[in-house]
Simulated assay, not measured.
Amino acid sequence: MNEDPGTQRPGTEHWPVEVRLKSAEKRLEIDFDNGVGFSLPAEFLRVSSPSAEVQGHGPGQKTLQRGKMHVGIMKLEPVGHYALRIVFDDLHDSGIYTWAYLYELGENQERLWAEYLAELEEKGYSRDPRVR
């Protein structure tokens, strides 16, 4: 049965063809149907969580995450056919990472990571949980 891809993938331009959890390396690797692949560190995913706990409930409410340098991923849980719930070893599990959001994170990883590090430095925070 051939259905219109738009009915199968609402809001998703690129669809994952393979998702790999690399626990020892603390990263998620994801390949998309357009041949693009990303290797996303657990720390980057954790500090970029789409959860309300991190993003807030509106513009300007984002909470800067700190001390997440050593965070890992315990497991991945599919959410329908459109997303993943990532369970981190700091027990954060409320973010729903849509395929579109994961693609966006991958495409913009370098810039987003640089902005995150700059904000940490500006506020005098550390990625290391042992540093206060």
Rank of each mutant, 00 (worst) to 15 (best):
R66H: 14
K62R: 12
P16K: 05
P50I: 06
E13M: 15
I86A: 01
R132G: 10
S23V: 06
P59T: 07
A83P: 13
G37Q: 13
I86Y: 02
M1Y: 08
E77K: 08
K26A: 12
P59C: 06
D4A: 09
L91F: 15
G58P: 02
K123V: 03
E104T: 00
V17Y: 00
V36G: 01
V87Y: 01
L40V: 04
K68D: 07
F44N: 08
E43Y: 06
L117N: 11
Q8N: 13
D33S: 11
Y125R: 09
W113E: 11
G95W: 00
A83H: 01
V54K: 07
N34T: 00
H14S: 14
F38M: 07
I86D: 01
M1K: 14
E107W: 05
A42L: 12
Y97C: 04
V17K: 12
A24K: 09
T63F: 02
A52R: 15
Q8W: 11
E104W: 08
R85N: 12
S48G: 05
E53C: 10
V131F: 09
W15C: 02
Q55F: 00
T98H: 10
N2Q: 14
E107D: 05
E104L: 06
N108L: 03
P10K: 13
Y97I: 04
R132S: 09
F88P: 00
Y125W: 13
D93H: 13
N2W: 14
G67R: 03
Y97G: 00
A100Y: 00
Y103S: 00
L84G: 03
D89W: 05
Q61I: 07
H81F: 15
P16E: 09
P5S: 07
G67H: 07
F44C: 01
R132N: 11
E107R: 12
L91N: 14
F44T: 06
A52I: 04
S126N: 03
Y97Q: 00
S39R: 15
D128Y: 03
E25C: 04
P78E: 15
Y101K: 02
L102N: 04
R20M: 09
Y103F: 07
H92K: 06
N2I: 13
E53G: 11
G124Y: 08
K75M: 13
G124T: 06
R130Y: 12
K123S: 02
R127H: 13
P50R: 09
R127E: 14
R85K: 14
R27Y: 04
R132A: 08
I73R: 01
S49W: 03
V47E: 05
V131Q: 09
P5V: 11
L40M: 09
E119N: 08
L84P: 02
W113M: 06
E53H: 09
L84Q: 06
T98M: 12
G124R: 03
Y82H: 10
A83E: 10
E13W: 01
P5G: 15
L28K: 01
P41E: 09
L64D: 04
K68S: 12
N34I: 09
E122C: 03
E3K: 15
E29L: 12
V36K: 06
K75W: 00
K75N: 14
E29S: 15
D128G: 03
R20V: 10
T98K: 07
Y116G: 02
F32Q: 04
G56N: 06
E119F: 05
A24P: 01
